[in-house]
Design a protein around this nucleic acid. Sequence first.
DNA 1: TGACTGTGACTGACCAGTCAGTCATAAATG
DNA 2: CATTTATGACTGACTGGTCAGTCACAGTCA
Lengths: 227, 227
Amino acid sequence: MTRKPTKAAPAHAKNRMHDADAEVAPASNRATRAAERRHAIVEAAMEEFIARGFAATRLDDIAKRAGVAKGTIYLHFKDKESMFEELVRTVIVPVVARLNALPPPTGSVRDLIETFAGNFIKEVIGTRRGDLVRLIVAEGPRFPSVADFYYREVVSRGIAGMRALIELGIARGEIREKDLARYPQIMIAPAMIAVIWQSLFARHAPLDVQDMLRVHLDLIFGERRAT
Amino acid sequence: MTRKPTKAAPAHAKNRMHDADAEVAPASNRATRAAERRHAIVEAAMEEFIARGFAATRLDDIAKRAGVAKGTIYLHFKDKESMFEELVRTVIVPVVARLNALPPPTGSVRDLIETFAGNFIKEVIGTRRGDLVRLIVAEGPRFPSVADFYYREVVSRGIAGMRALIELGIARGEIREKDLARYPQIMIAPAMIAVIWQSLFARHAPLDVQDMLRVHLDLIFGERRAT
DNA sequence: TGACTGTGACTGACCAGTCAGTCATAAATG
DNA sequence: CATTTATGACTGACTGGTCAGTCACAGTCA
């Protein structure tokens, strides 16, 4: 909360924009300003929802964090519920886009998957994105539309992509266990566990995710030969 | 404070007992009755918390479901929060006890783990218990004491037990990947994923958990030889 | 100036937690 | 054993506070 509570200075209204945003151009154009505000709201809402869960999050807090009046939120979203749903979409879509941009299949399948795992660690584990995954697990059952969306856009695509990779690995003789193609979930499971572990138990027992995923890949591809 | 003086007419007082309770033995003894009620409250609370999450659950609903007045809840629990915490303890402890009762190490390690997986499927996957695990993942960050308890009583023990089993498997030559003992999480990951999958995505894509876990064990122990 | 965007005080519903009162049962008494 | 008294488990109407959503007004831009 960097905002000085002393409302003192409503004079220069633009100051309401918080510091992070203050740096971007003032954005004279109305539509641009509106988009910026919307973005600030989404950002703030994500923080709050992750920290408190859907039901316990107060719109007043989101508004304050976004540097906006509560009413403004309702100019952009119908209500709290649809804000949550839209927010998940908004945040997830770019991640999906990024994952679809897999590097061309030059190296071995193991290298491909290792790269993928590296990205996953960097982009998801221990970031807001990871918390978002936990949030979806937490609220999914109460928001079928969110769960549906997440399944359609992330899970089913991820599973399909991973399956293709596994089949390639089997065809090339890198992977022995042929049945693995039936359950790509097994490939992804330790990564998901890592996400959950980090947000629940890291305090008690830190987990070397990188190393764990390496061991898991050794299990699937056989011990790695000298690099 | 002015209690309606002429409260009149709770003439048919005994009718307050509702039908659900009428069926169980009247339980003449006071302490027994109290224990029964407490149990009914815990049971009802678990259902409600699982269905709605902590913040969105109303104590009125718990009371109604338990066939009890709201005030009664406060005779057994300090407040909503400590009710949630105690409830998690109450429900989890017997499960832990049961898991500690591992069969004696007669067969192979693989058989041992397969038995364990079978029990897990039967006792956890697709049951209230599974939902409870999801609930802990969901609410854990907001209830550090619950997360701590769960780590101490379930996770750390589970990990330790699994590690011992893995080491045995390595010593006996059943398991090749020696590093697996450093990350027992890998062994458990698919089972956890199954729990989450069932409650979020089963509707979209049912998962044959039994088969998936078998494939995962094949990965670790090598293809199963004819039984 | 007129149209549009943003504001925040306000409202009404909702709900955790309280407590004065009830009553079945247990204990004490004759 | 029958009757009276004491106990405390249980009840549910009520309170105080919270918060999603509204709207009359203020500010801003073209």
